[in-house]
């Protein structure tokens, strides 16, 4: 193995890029600190907790006693641990931010990163809708500070589609196939799996229609049943937002996240200058309970490298 090579999906950062990245993250850090979000750092090496893992860790090793150590795959789970253990006797709400690398496995030849820098914030102990509105406002403030002009934030509800399937009493195994197609973005497969559920015609039509509903606040009007419940939650959040934040939102009833711990509102950050999402987040109201301190929570993470690409593309005037 050549000693002058680095693993695919990792990279060196040289001074010109580093200066730009640092300037951007310093502006974002200023926004977080002013909003009362204190910066924390947690170990890159953690004990493996398979039941909590957002995505299965890609890099494992052993410590001196033979226990499995992993490189962390996100910062949300460690911050939930901090809130539940180090702040066990501090009254909520708790506010934390971080600038830290996370590690994921890559598929070959895809230009994916094994190691990537995330800038994020977590708000613990603030339920929906007020907590969600605070997180969305902080997210937009951070993106403004980074210098992005044309970004938009997709907002959905992770419980919406599983809730619809449960209310229709679809069989559990078949339900997973439907959700898997939705997460893949495979609308052709979704239609096939939904039709295979053997539901009434109006239920089938609803399940096929919902993932296509996305747009301004007008898409939340005139809904019924389980759909209206989810929409009411999104409207309540929307009503708390200042126009500068509210105008950035795209309500997206088909937005689902592959990370297992999301329970309610989910976010995804888009910029027309970049073809892939540059950040994401959502509510994880059950996660802290697994560390013994049940508190609702919400947060987001921005991919700093993608943010930098989007900023550069915006400055060049798009594609």
């Amino acid at each position: 193995m050549a000693v002058d090579r680095i693993p695919s999906g990792t990279r060196d950062v040289l001074p010109d890029e580093m200066r730009e990245l640092r300037a951007m993250t310093d502006r974002i850090r200023g926004v977080f600190e002013r909003a009362g979000y204190g910066e924390v750092y947690t170990p890159a090496l953690e004990y493996e907790r398979r039941e909590l893992a957002a995505t299965l860790p890609a890099y494992r090793t052993f410590d001196e006693q033979g226990q499995v150590l992993v490189l962390r795959s996100d910062m949300t789970v460690p911050i939930a641990r901090i809130a539940a253990t180090r702040y066990a006797h501090v009254d909520p709400p708790l506010r934390f931010c971080y600038f830290a690398h996370a590690y994921r496995g890559v598929r070959p030849q895809r230009g994916q990163s094994r190691e990537f820098l995330q800038a994020g914030a977590e708000l613990v102990g603030a339920p929906a809708p007020a907590g969600t509105a605070e997180a969305l406002t902080l997210l937009c403030d951070a993106l403004d500070a980074a210098g992005l002009k044309t970004y938009q934030v997709g907002v959905g509800d992770a419980s919406l589609y599983p809730g619809l399937l449960a209310a229709m009493e679809a069989a559990a195994g078949a339900r997973d196939l439907v959700l898997a197609a939705l997460v893949r973005g495979d609308f052709v497969g979704l239609e096939r799996e939904v039709r295979a559920l053997g539901l009434a015609q109006d239920e089938v039509e609803l399940l096929l229609e919902v993932p296509r509903i996305r747009g301004g606040p007008e898409v939340l009007e005139g809904l019924s049943g389980a759909l209206e419940q989810a929409a009411a939650g999104m409207r309540a959040t929307h009503a708390l937002l200042e126009p500068r934040v509210a105008d950035r939102l795209i309500f997206d009833l088909g937005l689902v996240r592959s990370l297992g711990y999301y329970t309610g509102a989910v976010f995804q950050v888009y910029d027309p200058a970049h073809g892939v999402p540059i950040g994401s987040g959502g509510r994880y109201d059950d996660l802290l309970g697994r560390f013994g301190r049940p508190l609702p929570a919400v947060g987001f993470a921005l991919n700093v490298e993608r943010l930098h690409i989007a900023l550069t593309e915006e400055e060049r005037g798009g594609r």
């Binding site: 938009q152 997709g154 973005g185 052709v188 296509r212 996305r214 747009g215 795209i250 997206d252 995804q268 888009y270 910029d271 027309p272 970049h274 073809g275 892939v276 999402p277």
Partner: peptide, 18 residues
């Protein structure tokens, strides 16, 4: 043959795609 869409365009250009 299948029609495919970019994940960001599907949200930001929803009206045009629909």
């Amino acid at each position: 043959a299948r029609l495919i869409a970019n994940r960001v365009a599907h949200k930001l250009k929803a009206r045009e795609i629909d």
